[in-house]
Amino acid sequence: MGRAVTASARLVAMLRDPGNAHALGLSEWMDVVTVARAELLLGTLAHRLDGLAVTAEVRAVLDDARAEASEVRRTALWEANRVAHALAGLGVPVILLKGTAFVAAGLAAGQGRSIGDCDILLPKAVLPAAEAALAEAGWEWVKPDAYDDLYYRRWMHELPPLIHRDRDRMLDVHHTILPPTARPTPDATALIADAVPLGGGLAILSHNDMLIHAAAHLFADGDLSGGLRNLWDIHALVVEGGADGLAQRAAQHGLGFAVDRAMRLSHALYATPVAPRWQRLTIPDRIFRRRMLARDGWGRGRHPLTRLAFYVRSHLIRMPLPLLLRHLWIKWRKGRAAPASG
């Protein structure tokens, strides 16, 4: 497999055990930095290596990454503050998800983390009022297309994506953590009932629900791009808060399989402390690991067939086949009618 596989693997090894950072040569460092950027893990790596001796060239890159992460954190917290402000009249707390939740709660998983959109969870019943309040406060639809809009509303677990017209930040408003068309049906009422208030109109999911959401996002949604970063979230959450009662809670949401796989892979890649039953990879797990490490030292995706298989899988697990075919048919016809639009 040679040098190419080792770039991703080296990044993982360095996150797992930063003490070995000094042993790396400059050309290996170049590969690690490139892979870490591609996997959105450079800020996380920079935090893991903070205070350790590295050569000046590498230190400069890591210092930049730490500075950028602190700016990303500040921007994400401000956006959460603005969303809570806009939705204060709803009378329910705004539950932050993913990266914004981690930094708002001061969790280790948030240290150096890249954060793109602001993701929030609200009870389905308040969505119409939330939409009106957000529109009032300056959020606009990103996709002004009737089919896309209808598609989101009928088949997705979130509203069509919104963007704020002044701050240019995206907002995803969820009412549960998986599309209704996916086979597992998480218990959205329980997610919201057990959320932990943070003050200021904000809340986060309970510790186990954060873990379950991260696992669901990895293995029951998406095509595993950014998988190493999402798996790092799981690792950091377990190291900080353990996994007591996780299996039972996952079963309640119908996501036992996703959580089991997340725990096994997190242990295998990042040496997360987990119960013995999660310490052995299954044969399918190994294919997931291959997909997660499919990047070479130049940041290029490797194993195109594995990638394609996971891309196809991501659609199949999101919705039943007839619905998928109908969706792809409409998208294809629209693509032909208007080739310029994405």
Partner: peptide
């Protein structure tokens, strides 16, 4: 010609 690059560019 340095031993370390801050940025990688690929023409693909």
């Amino acid at each position: 010609k340095p031993d370390f690059a801050d940025y990688t560019v690929r023409l693909e």
